[in-house]
Design a protein around this nucleic acid. Structure first.
Lengths: 235, 235
DNA sequence: ACAAAATTCAAACAAGCGTTTTAAATTCTC
DNA sequence: GAGAATTTAAAACGCTTGTTTGAATTTTGT
């Protein structure tokens, strides 16, 4: 084993330094990202990646120990590059909770319109949901949890409940579920309701609907009863 | 080509008769279903399937033209076996729309508790969402569309709008999205909120919440303004 | 400028895949 | 029960996969 021990290649766990001259490495990550997102991990071949990156077949094994090493690096990178920090910024701004919620919904929906770079990481996430790999932990902790806890804080403040309260969580799930539906079920929606085209104006319309739909419950219970009434059916 | 033309094997498009004596065929479908659900289409090997089914390696190619032929048959079968007709029955029963909606939400959530048989087809569906195959059309048309149109009819009747109206659709998506969230994001939820255990009582609680959350909007606009007001923020 | 390390390259490797083939066993029909 | 069709069986085929190899090339340090 001649090469494998020399340089900074092995040990996928850290991603130490980017180094400007390290062109092949970054080109591999970019090419692999697009392909992994489109085809999933196992459908993507190392040869495809290297062809698109203009690198040699052995490059993947040299720079990242093996194919899965490249994959986890891609996942880490895509989570960093995803425009989720934009959503996070919307969460952290000042203003009435209702307006923040509206803005967050819009920002999150917009981050998955068309496939310009950021839906890149979302497809990888979809593949992870269908069949989780160890990279799932990276995704959850670095990308999802910060947004989730912010959402719980926001909802909790509107309901006057602690963020960990079960009802707070349930409401957060209701809102997140509505948003993610348009991400995951997109291919199904396009068959069920072909007139929904996911244009920019359509996204705005959807975002407004989700906000109104959710605020109907939130602002009702905000000043309504504190107890989780549910026998309130009037048949 | 000797065998391939003789019997009822080829032509995956129909699935004509079950025939009791056809043991190998059904055993292949059962084994393949479990494996496809667990591992996805491309991770499952024909050798695994045949080993679990106690059949020979060539059995798949004999009974179903090829691996994808077996797959589409499995998808078709699993859609039939899924307890979606139960949900459909709940849709079709009589009563106030609110009660029907509550029952539907509960029935749909219950059909995905634990992994006893019915989550089987759901995982396959998740894989289809991540990377659709031609089997997606079968799923959408035979399983999803009947439920979707019923949901739109129900919501439309509550909103006094036609089922094809955009607002009707948006509300249907909001409800479906909340439900499916607990199916798709289960692995993420278990990491974010470990205390949510998806027990039977927990499922009931979630179902009640989704119903209340959604009815807050539906019953509000039911007797409220017909126009899609959205500048109605009261900052 | 030069040796040493790092990187790239073409070629080959072993393993696993879906599928095909050929023959034997089984079942069905009359 | 003989003969034909169907179903199983074992082995191999052709192909693609991820990975390794060892030499050529470029980059780096002094």
């Amino acid at each position: 084993m001649p090469t494998q021990k020399r340089s900074r290649n092995r040990d996928t766990g850290a991603s130490v330094q980017p180094i400007a001259s390290d062109q092949t490495r970054t080109r591999l990550i970019d090419a692999a990202g697009e392909l992994f997102a489109e085809l999933g991990f196992h459908h993507t071949t190392v040869r495809q990646i290297c062809l698109r990156a203009g690198a040699n077949i052995a490059a993947v094994n040299y720079h990242f120990r093996d194919k899965t090493g490249l994959y986890t690096e891609v996942v880490r990178q895509s989570m960093r590059a995803a425009r989720l920090d934009a959503v996070r910024a919307v969460f952290d701004q000042d203003g009435p909770p209702e307006d923040i919620l509206r803005a967050v919904i819009k920002a999150r929906l917009e981050s998955l319109r068309s496939l310009d770079l950021s839906d890149w990481h979302f497809r990888i996430f979809a593949h992870e949901l269908a069949k989780p790999t160890p990279a799932m932990n990276v995704i959850v902790n670095e990308a999802i949890r910060p947004l989730y806890s912010r959402m719980c804080n926001l909802i909790g403040s509107m309901l006057r409940l602690p963020p960990e309260h079960e009802r707070t969580r349930l409401c957060a799930h209701s809102i997140i579920g509505q948003i993610l539906f348009y991400a995951f079920a997109r291919s199904v929606i396009s068959r069920l309701a072909p007139e929904m085209k996911m244009t920019a104006t359509q996204i705005n319309l959807i975002a407004d609907h989700i906000a109104e739909f959710s605020l109907a419950y939130l602002s009702q219970t905000q000043r309504g009863p504190t107890k989780t009434k549910m026998g309130g059916k009037k048949r």
